[in-house]
Simulated scan of single mutants.
Amino acid sequence: MVNASSKYNKIWLTVQCIPFGTVATYGQIADLAGLPGSARLVGKALGLAPKNLKVNWHRVLRSNGQIAFPSGSSDADTQRDLLLEENVAVINYRVNLKVFQWQPNLTEMLIKLRF
């Protein structure tokens, strides 16, 4: 049986693979981490990530491209600003996934996402 900390590590490692200027969804991260159906766990893991890991949590969004924090909140504004610094267009706290979503190729999946 896989413990929670092992699952969190897989999630953190997967999020760290999202390239600069791209985003992924909670469900996509769960799938790539080998935890299908665990999108909510991804959110929980990101909230518990140790600061020294420097996990790029701001690159993870809802399945519709929306920032998960309430619009206009300081957390939503921080995430929006971090994405804008990476030249990711954020309009009304939403990102166009057709343009900015990370689509890892086979090499990335075999090499970067090895657990």
Rank of each mutant, 00 (worst) to 15 (best):
Ser6Cys: 07
Ile18His: 01
Pro104Met: 03
Gly47Phe: 12
Ser71Tyr: 12
Gly65Leu: 11
Ala24Tyr: 05
Leu41Gly: 07
Leu84Lys: 15
Ala30Glu: 10
Leu53Pro: 03
Ser74Leu: 10
Val90Lys: 01
Cys17Trp: 02
Thr107Ala: 14
Gln103Ala: 11
Pro50His: 10
Ile111Ala: 07
Met1Gly: 15
Ala33Gln: 10
Leu41Asp: 05
Gly21His: 08
His58Thr: 04
Ala45Arg: 08
Glu108Cys: 12
Ser71His: 13
Ser6Asp: 13
Thr78Asn: 14
Pro104Ile: 02
Ala49Gly: 01
Ser71Phe: 14
Leu84Trp: 06
Arg40Ala: 09
Thr14Val: 03
Ser38His: 14
Asn105Asp: 15
Ser74Met: 08
Ala45Tyr: 08
His58Leu: 03
Pro50Phe: 04
Lys112Val: 01
Leu61Lys: 02
Gly37Tyr: 07
Ala68Gln: 11
Pro70Trp: 09
Pro50Cys: 03
Leu35Arg: 09
Asn92Ala: 13
Leu61Phe: 04
Gln66Met: 11
Gln66Phe: 05
Gly34Lys: 03
Gln66Asn: 08
Leu97Asn: 09
Lys112Tyr: 09
Gly34Ser: 04
Leu13Pro: 04
Ala45Asn: 07
Tyr8Glu: 05
Gln103Phe: 06
Gly72Ala: 06
Ala76Glu: 01
Leu84Pro: 01
Thr78Lys: 15
Leu106Glu: 14
Leu32Ala: 02
Tyr26Asp: 00
Glu108Ser: 13
Thr14Asp: 08
Val15Gln: 06
Lys44Leu: 12
Ser73Cys: 08
Gln66Lys: 14
Ile67Trp: 07
Ser63Val: 13
His58Asp: 02
Val60Cys: 05
Trp12Glu: 03
Ala30Arg: 09
Ser38Lys: 15
Pro104Tyr: 02
Gly27Asn: 09
Asn87Ser: 14
Ala33Tyr: 10
Lys44Ser: 11
Gln101Phe: 00
Val42Ile: 04
Ile18Thr: 04
Cys17Phe: 04
Glu108Leu: 08
Leu53Glu: 04
Lys98Tyr: 10
Lys54Ala: 11
